[in-house]
Structure formats: structure tokens, C-alpha cells
Design a protein around this nucleic acid. Sequence first.
DNA 1: TAGGCCATCTGGTCCT
DNA 2: AGGACCAGATGGCCTA
Length: 245
Amino acid sequence: MPAPLETCLSDLGWASSNSGGSDQSGFLTDEEDCARLQPPVPTSGPSAPPRRGAPGISGAPEVPGAQDDEQERRRRRGRARVRSEALLHSLRRSRRVKANDRERNRMHNLNAALDALRSVLPSFPDDTKLTKIETLRFAYNYIWALAETLRLADQGLPGGGARERLLQPQCAPCLPGPPSPASDAESWGSATAASPCTAAASPLSDPSSPAASEDFAYGPGDPLFSFPGLPKDLLHTTTCFIPYQ
DNA sequence: TAGGCCATCTGGTCCT
DNA sequence: AGGACCAGATGGCCTA
């Protein structure tokens, strides 16, 4: 059972001078850290030979005055306080380092998940990597488009043939397509028309489409709009990954 | 050089 | 009580 640091220090004879706010209480218990608080071999601590007032070599009886005793006690308390404060600081530091390490690891896991998500999204040129926000937005829209494709396919193809068609990489030749000036709406349209594949129903035509949301960078007013949330310089790569007509 | 993106640190809060 | 999660701050790197 972990012992509170104050108890630890108290057991060691070191009263924590850090009366501390509640913000510090979270750092004050840890068995392992408490174990680190074994008192250092005192060089001038309670068991150390007294610097002053030691029995005289002459053997004369030493009777220290009350003032000397009080001063010595004050000095010892001061040294203990400095030591306990340093230990508290060290303890908080070590726990902060542990927390930083966990946080770093957590973020690495999050990034690994994002990489996994990127890997299942339609491919892009090798030297292109979607940013985090682009990955999330594109995945959102990609899922919407796939669901929409299934819905339309099921409407138009009794028997659920859409699923089989979706599973066939019939659109692979156009992924990714050659770079084209994304700023040219006409060339954009012609490129799409020339594609062996055609996109699913435009997200624009469906009020439930993510395209309808202003949260996405490329809205209905954008002539280049294809897949909302996708960077404009990557639009050409997503002209036709929806294998449904 | 400004702006975007990212990794990391940090302290607060919530959850188990 | 300790870990997970979160958001703000900060600094580095890169690009237009």
C-alpha cells in the first residue's frame, strides 16, 4: 500500500515544509518513489558527530548552553526542510517524466492509428501524405460515399449486385490519376468524363452529404468540389474511386 | 518571414 | 491513487 509522501517524510523525520495546494496532492503518493526517499547517509544529520559541543579532548564536562541547542535544532530543521523540498521537487519531476512518457506513447499510438487509416484510403502519390485533419475529413467523406454507393446500387441493382461490383477494383486504373490543374473547372469536368469510372451521386445532390456541411473546406459553391475536405492539390486523385454508375 | 503542421510538455479533469 | 484523456503553450521544421 502506497504511503503518502508526507507520511513518508514524517517517518523519515522530515516534515514537509510544502504545505502545498491541492494541485500538488496528486503527486504525493507512490510506493516506488517513497522508497527512493530513504534518508541519505547524513554527513551532518542527527546521527552525525556534532560539529560543536563535542566532548572536549581535555575530558572536561561539556554543558552546552540552551541557546546553542536551539540554534543547532534550527539549523537541522532548515537543512531537513531544504532536503525535503528538493526531494519533493525530484519526486514531482520523476512523476511528470513518467506522465510525459505515457502521453508521448499515447500520441504515437494515435498517429499509428491515423497511419492505418491513411493506408486504407484511396492511394495518393507516394510523396503525398494527408495531414491529420485531412485524413479524418477524407475518411469521413469516403465512408459516406461508399455508403451512398451501396444505397444507390441496391436501388438500381436488385439482388445486391452492387456489393460485388464494389469489391472489384474496376476503378483501379484511375487511382491516382495524372495531375491536372485543379483550378480549371472545365478540365476538371472533362477529366472526370474521360475517366473509365464515374463517381457516385454527387454529394451535392444529397442533403445528408458531408458536402452540405460548412465544416468542410470544399463546399457546394466551390467549382472544384469533389470530395469535401480533401486538399485541392489532391483533388485529381479522387476523381473516380467510386466504382458505381 | 508568416503561416501551417507537428511533436512534446504540462496541468487539469475524468475514469477505473 | 494512478492512468487516460484533453486542451493550451511552446518551439522546430517546412513551404509559399
